[in-house]
Structure formats: C-alpha cells, structure tokens
C-alpha cells in the first residue's frame, strides 16, 4: 500500500471528508497542484474547480472527486487541509441548473464591467458552475 497522509476537507457548514489520502489535487490560483505525502509545507489559495483525491477507505484506494468553491489548501508534514466555501459531489450536480448558473453569471459579469469585486465574484460563480459541469463530464 502506498504511503498516505491524513486529509481533511472542510466547508463552513460541514466536514466533508476526514481520512487518509495518497494524493490530493486541487486547483490553486496558480494552476493545479498535487500534494503527495511528505510534501514540503505549502499554503495556497484555491479557485473554484474540481478537487480530486486518492483516498484510502477500509484499506482500499478510492477516488474522491468534488466540485469545490473558493478556498485554501494547506499541506503540512503531518496533514493536508483543504478549506472551501462549498463542495458538491457527482450525484448532487443538477446539470441544467449548473448551465443556467454559468450563463447567468456570465451575463452579470458583462453587466458589471470591470468593477473589481463584482467581476471577481461572478468569475468565481462561473468557475464553480464550470467545475460542476466538468465533474459530471458535460464540459
């Protein structure tokens, strides 16, 4: 069995996952970042995207894939912590709703122009909608 590291995925309303992982891949502001056990201490901001992890449950390796909102990822020698606004699994995604969210956010972003905060907020909404679609293989 591959080496593992304790991994926690937390949203403000729930601890989504707490267990051991062989690998955690998240979309940071700088691009995708994969964390293996014994990674150097690391802290980064996350963009909305698809978070993937190889988790070990009951001795068997499994794939965890979730669409996540904005957040942060911290890797320490003894654990990996991911904090996100929200996280949804494959079966929770409503595809037509995600498409609608994407187009609505795009429209709002166009209307907002280049106003920093509003632009960034709508971009995050677009990214999250796209992440949900990617997760379900619709984009």
């Amino acid at each position: 069995m591959a080496t593992t590291i304790p991994f926690t995925l937390i949203t403000p309303t729930k601890v989504i996952f707490e267990g051991n992982a062989e690998l955690v891949i998240a979309v940071t502001t700088e691009g995708e970042e994969g964390i293996l056990p014994k990674h150097a201490p690391f802290l980064s901001a996350l963009r909305p995207g698809v978070l993937r992890a190889n988790i070990v449950e009951a001795g068997a390796s499994q794939r965890l894939e979730l669409a996540t909102g904005e957040g942060f990822m911290q890797a320490l020698p003894e654990r990996v912590t991911v904090l996100v606004d929200r996280a949804v699994g494959f079966e929770e995604v409503d595809i037509s709703q995600a498409r609608q969210e994407q187009s609505e956010a795009s429209a709002r972003q166009k209307a907002a122009g280049t106003d920093g905060a509003a632009f960034a907020r709508e971009q995050a909404a677009i990214d999250f909608a796209v992440a949900k679609l990617r997760l379900t293989g619709h984009q």
């Binding site: 150097a40 201490p41 942060f72």
Partner: peptide, 21 residues
C-alpha cells in the same frame, strides 16, 4: 510557525485572498 513554508505564489497574495474570507 512551522519553519519554512512554501506559499504559492506568495504569502501576501494568499493573505489577500484569506483576509476577506
């Protein structure tokens, strides 16, 4: 503080995301 920590891209950048959050 846990010694050398790598911040991607920089502590200031991550902090500018983290403070509003």
């Amino acid at each position: 503080h846990r010694g050398a920590v790598e911040f991607s891209p920089s502590p200031e950048f991550v902090l500018s995301h983290l403070l509003p959050k």
